[in-house]
Design a binder for these strands. Structure first.
Lengths: 169, 169
DNA sequence: ACCTTAAATGTTATATTATAACATAACATT
DNA sequence: AATGTTATGTTATAATATAACATTTAAGGT
């Protein structure tokens, strides 16, 4: 079995000028639907709606902000409504939790399960996701020298994105 | 100015057989006292006590567990008592917050400020801290290709430590 | 179509984590 | 001792998350 060279991939880039978020959102929803269908799991209306709300922007969204919107639409919504949907979406890799912000962000590539590396702009709040094999390999190597076996990594990097760097001179 | 080769350093290793935690704790407290003195900041009795409680083990400690112990000793303790002490200790680099566990752990090397990479054993709960320049450099490089400027990284890795790997065969 | 079962959602209550806001006490300097 | 600053006390509440049980909805077999 040939192992292809591992690339640095950007799953969800920072939005550029002219970013059509409507298209971005639509495509995320379509991918989610296809992926759920293929996996035989159910993207119910509620789950779809929560995913839509998470994808409302490229900024991480708080669970209770989602809840507020759900309540506007359906008075029976309560914290478990949101957390169950988020649990499902996270389990299916469609949403990631940004631990350092206790907030949730859509995943740009849910088809194959992974946990990426997040770049969080402290100025505009946007989050980009990388899935870099070199980083993963280096960490595995380092952990290995301590005899540690990695199951799961969480990498959240804060700083300034290119656009905000330019603006703030 | 000569730039020395960057090494992978383990600030706080996983405890080995025969680990004397008393010595470990004492040395952490002495280092903290020295460091605070040198910096002209005050390691008050309360702050020292909170640091001691955080250093009670190599497992991350929850804020409200610290609070419970403080209340045993002094009825006037309340959430702000703990969080203020933790804020101070974190600002001085003596304690790190493990975001993915919302828990706090002592830093093995508070003299110079840094944020390390944490290895968290899912079996025994212990946390080790690395401060690996290669990892930092690689991430900086990757971020740079996206035009992103890093301020601060959070790296939390979950898995099995050497001891638990052996035990669980 | 009907029944059964499993999965999803509704509902109420509560646990856990963290901060706001203002009062008082301790400490350091003059 | 008077003063300003830093630390702590105190009360209240905000923000995040889960437990436990009831009801509804969907899926698969007959």
């Amino acid at each position: 079995m040939k192992k292809h060279k591992s690339h640095s991939r950007v799953l969800m880039p920072f939005k550029e000028n002219g970013h059509s978020h409507k298209k971005c959102l639509d495509s995320a929803l379509i991918t989610a639907e296809k992926t759920c269908l293929a996996r035989g799991v159910r993207l119910t209306r509620l789950r779809r709606r929560v995913l839509e709300l998470v994808w409302g922007s490229h900024e991480p969204v708080k669970a209770y902000d989602i809840l507020d919107k759900l309540r506007d639409e359906h008075s029976g919504s309560a914290p478990p409504t949101v957390y169950r949907a988020l649990d499902f979406l996270r389990a299916e890799g469609m949403v990631h939790k940004i631990e350092s912000l206790t907030a949730y962000v859509g995943c740009g590539e849910p088809e194959h399960r992974h946990i990426g590396q997040f770049l969080i702009c402290r100025a505009c709040g946007a989050v980009a996701e990388m899935d870099d094999a070199e980083v993963r390999e280096l960490l595995a190597e380092k952990a290995d020298t301590l005899g540690f076996h990695i199951d799961r990594e969480m990498i959240e990097i804060k700083g300034l994105c290119a656009a905000c760097l330019t603006e703030n001179i």
